[in-house]
Amino acid sequence: MSLHDDVVAALRGWPGPQHALREAYLGFLAARQDACERSCVPGHITASALVLDSTGTRALLTLHPRVGRWLQLGGHCEPSDRTLAGAALREATEESGIEGLRIDPVPVHLDVHPITCSLGVPTRHFDVRFVVRAPAGAEPVRSAESDDLRWWPLDALPPDTDDLAPLVRAARQQATWTAL
Rank of each mutant, 00 (worst) to 15 (best):
P114S: 10
L101G: 02
I115S: 09
A138I: 01
Q72H: 14
R124Q: 09
P79D: 06
E37G: 07
R38Q: 14
A144Q: 10
I103N: 01
V168E: 02
L21Q: 11
Q173T: 12
G97L: 04
T161I: 03
I103Y: 02
L180V: 13
S48C: 07
D160T: 15
G137V: 00
P42L: 04
T57W: 12
L157M: 01
G68N: 11
P153E: 00
H44Y: 13
L52Y: 08
A170D: 06
H125L: 12
A85Q: 06
G74A: 06
P153S: 00
D162P: 09
S96Q: 03
P105V: 09
S146G: 15
L71E: 11
A138C: 01
A31D: 14
H44R: 08
C40R: 02
T83E: 10
V132Y: 02
D53P: 06
Y25A: 04
H19P: 10
D34Q: 05
V41T: 14
G43P: 10
P15Y: 07
I115T: 15
A9S: 15
R32M: 08
L164R: 00
L50G: 06
A31Y: 10
Q173W: 13
H4I: 15
P122D: 04
M1C: 09
V108R: 06
A35C: 07
E99C: 12
L154Q: 00
H113M: 12
R169D: 15
V168K: 00
L63M: 13
A144I: 11
P159K: 07
Q72T: 15
S48K: 07
V51K: 03
G137Q: 01
H109C: 01
D53M: 05
D53F: 07
P15D: 05
V41P: 08
I115E: 15
I103D: 01
P114K: 05
G74Q: 05
F130V: 00
C77G: 15
S54E: 14
E139G: 10
L29D: 13
V67G: 09
T176Y: 11
R90G: 05
W151K: 02
R90M: 03
P42F: 10
H125G: 05
T178C: 14
G97S: 04
R69D: 13
V7T: 08
L154M: 02
R22V: 10
R90H: 09
I45G: 00
P140D: 04
A85V: 11
V108W: 03
L26I: 02
A9Q: 15
L154G: 03
L61A: 07
T83W: 09
S143Q: 13
R66S: 12
R66P: 09
R133Q: 04
T161N: 01
V8P: 05
H109P: 01
P114R: 07
A49Q: 04
G43C: 07
V128T: 01
V108I: 13
A10N: 09
L164C: 04
L3I: 14
V8R: 05
H125N: 08
A24G: 10
D163F: 15
P105Q: 05
D155R: 01
R133I: 06
R124N: 11
A156T: 06
S118N: 11
R129V: 12
Q174P: 12
L149N: 01
R12P: 14
E95F: 09
F28W: 13
P79K: 06
V7A: 01
L149Q: 01
P107H: 03
F130Y: 03
A136R: 03
L101K: 00
A35T: 04
R82A: 13
L89E: 07
P158K: 02
Q18H: 06
A134L: 01
L89D: 08
